[in-house]
Write a protein that binds this DNA or RNA. Structure first.
Lengths: 200, 200
DNA sequence: CCTTTTTTCTATAGATCTATAGATTTCGCT
DNA sequence: AGCGAAATCTATAGATCTATAGAAAAAAGG
């Protein structure tokens, strides 16, 4: 197998993953057929199996693709030398921007990964868990350096950030008129100061 | 048709809705078969159609059942004469307690309602929208009475509360060891004060 | 241009799913 | 007990879906 052959294969393989992501995001994993995916890719149903061993494998690859650069992005934010507020803003911005860019794979990861058997979820769990731990570390570092109160529950905080971003991400996808920058600012403000009067 | 006959029918109809909710919550709408639902109810697949006109109608009824008392509960919280903080706490408590009680129908409403055709979603939209508006009013009243800053975006706030509760609700379902009261307290604290140092 | 490899297509086996029709059982009531 | 109504069952039509096998087309490479 020549290099150009492998490149060509990988290129279309990626296109197949994106097609699957798009279809899964629209109809859910169980609501999508391999025919739907193949059609979006412009090939016939049977030919799809040249790129995926099974429909389940397609889901697995979509989820992996969705969570991967997401986790990498968090890695670089966590490693960066910025004050807490900037890191938090970067996290929210990264998360919501991905949704605005219609990162369908990330949505699929969030909504459909539980339909995978445990064995195919291991790697996903690792990545997602890594993401959360990086976020927790951002919080614990900030608590230690005095930027946040010490009593903070970093696990709760990280899950809350992720949950809030996912929720607003979905709203952003459904309403293209929403002003992304505004939502980001409000999310960060909520996470820092809450709604109460004594702040901001 | 006698009264007891109708009662009996309605009773089992409700049981059918709960069975469907349970199955849909576990496998998703498209991942569930009418056979699965019937089995959980202890009848044969074909007999299920004595209680539902179609699988889609079953989903519709599950969603309605899920969001209904939820919306009613919010109605009574919004109408009550309590300070803002108490109303917020009641809202979060109501929401998360429903999840802890394994209100599968509410989870199905959240996750699967978009698979219904628009016509069957109207009533659901009305109820969900009513819920949100009540919540928005709680915020705008509090802003007016000075309990919150005036600049607050009530729509953002309401969506954030709902999103946060849904996210933590799912985590609560998946981890039965989580301390409900603790999560409620932390959610309310986040919504009021954020994570920043200057508060609490 | 001809051979080999890669890619796609067609056709289909085998499973499963929804919804319906008609038979059968169970129940309510007198 | 026995009649009418309600509830459930069996069986099946008709559609669809996944995955595979083998033929055909397209591309690569000398």
């Amino acid at each position: 197998m020549t290099t150009s052959t492998r490149n060509r294969y990988e290129h279309k393989h990626q296109a197949a993953i994106r097609a699957a992501a798009s279809v899964f995001a629209e109809n859910g994993y169980h609501g999508s057929s391999t025919r739907d995916i193949a059609e979006r890719l412009g090939i016939k149903q049977g030919s799809l199996y040249y790129y995926f061993r099974s429909k389940e494998d397609a889901l697995s690859e979509v989820c992996l693709y969705g969570v991967q650069d997401y986790a990498e992005r968090m890695q670089s934010i966590a490693a960066s030398d910025q004050p807490f507020r900037a890191k938090l803003t970067a996290t929210v911005t990264s998360h919501l921007t991905k949704y605005r860019e219609k990162n369908e794979a990330l949505r699929v990861y969030n909504a459909e990964r539980l339909y995978l058997p445990a064995s195919k979820r291991e790697k996903l769990y690792e990545l997602g868990s890594g993401y959360r731990q990086q976020l927790e570390k951002i919080f614990s570092d900030a608590a230690e350096s005095g930027e946040l109160r010490r009593s903070i529950d970093c696990h709760f905080a990280a899950q809350a950030v992720i949950g809030l971003c996912n929720a607003w991400g979905e709203l952003i996808v459904r309403d293209p008129d929403l002003d992304l920058a505004e939502v980001i600012e409000k999310c960060v403000d909520l996470l820092l100061n809450g709604f109460s009067k004594t702040n901001g």
